[in-house]
């Protein structure tokens, strides 16, 4: 998107009053605040909380212990402490999900703007349609299988899978905004196509993009868990929620429920938090439920 770098693009600074109003709206928005607080708490605990037990060293003497005072969430068959590993996994899962989301936005938004303009856009979208018809998780699995393991590959895999979501969203927003009267007004006041795009269309579309980001992040948590469940993520002893659930799945049948259930709950909470944030953002940007 070279046009975006046009020299004439100099958006006016957003007024301080606007930011204050946004902050006020955020403060009243219980769901949004709750979502952000829970996520920060999970990350903070993963990095800074004194876990007492080393999540990376198994206690071979106590394997398959049910939850107790010593091991709050019990231990698994190798003797790893489930509590410390559940907390520790957030180090991997959450930043990875966020990075993957940011990456897909960075690719998807410019592609969406491209797809909204000119006759190549229409053809491009047909390709996107085909791509989007493939199931997300399967596609991510194929990419990781082909490209090998590691965080960079996982981020790329999830990003590529989610790019069409942003492309489609931004394209439809841009196309409907193009018909709006204030865009006609912008053209009449001499705005270049690039300025119209950045100062009017993107500015009015970013709310919905932010909402979509939270939803994609929530989905990424699940996809990352699924990849790790299938053993395509990180290798043990490095814990992730997916690999913990996988490890616990075998014991589930024998009544050792705690190994899989606690990381499962962690996935649930992380996904919920992102969804709360999405709901909260939607409420702020589109207060009456309607848009524009």
């Amino acid at each position: 998107m070279t046009v975006v770098a046009d020299a004439h693009v100099r958006p006016e600074r957003v007024g301080a009053g606007r930011l204050k109003a946004l902050a006020r709206a955020t403060g009243r928005n219980v769901g949004l605040v709750a979502g952000v607080v829970i996520l920060l708490a999970m990350l903070g605990a993963a990095y800074f909380a004194p876990l007492g037990v080393d999540p990376l060293t198994p206690d071979i003497a106590s394997t398959l212990q049910p939850p107790s005072h010593a091991h709050w969430f019990g231990t698994d068959r190798v003797g790893f402490d489930v509590f410390s590993r559940t907390i520790f996994s957030a180090r991997r899962d959450i930043p990875l999900a966020i990075a993957a989301t940011l990456f897909s936005v960075a690719l998807g938004v410019p592609l969406g703007l491209f797809a909204a303009s000119g006759r190549w856009g229409e053809r491009f979208m047909r390709g996107v349609d085909v791509f989007q018809a493939l199931p997300t998780v399967v596609l991510a699995i194929v990419i990781v299988q082909l490209a090998g393991q590691g965080s960079v590959v996982i981020i790329l895999a999830i990003a590529i899978v989610n790019v069409p979501r942003f492309t489609r969203l931004v394209r439809s927003e841009a196309i409907s905004l193009r018909e709006v009267r204030f865009v006609e007004a912008a053209i009449a006041t001499g705005c270049s196509p690039a300025r119209v795009l950045v100062n009017h269309i993107l500015r009015n579309a970013y709310g919905i993009v932010l909402v979509q980001c939270s939803l994609v992040a929530a989905n990424s948590i699940i996809v990352i868990a699924a990849l790790n469940f299938l053993g395509l993520g990180f290798s043990p002893p490095e814990p992730t929620w997916g690999s913990m659930i996988q490890a616990g799945a075998q014991s589930m049948a024998q009544g050792q429920w705690w190994i899989a259930v606690f990381p499962g709950v962690a996935v649930f909470i992380a996904v919920m938090s992102f969804n709360l944030i999405a709901d909260g953002l939607e409420h702020i940007f589109y207060p009456s439920g309607g848009r524009h």
Binding site: E12, G15, R181, A185, A186, T189
Partner: peptide
């Protein structure tokens, strides 16, 4: 409808 809802009045009038 002819005013961009996300801009301030000053930014709208400054655009030309």
């Amino acid at each position: 409808e002819s005013l961009d809802p996300r801009l301030t009045i000053a930014a709208i009038v400054a655009e030309p």
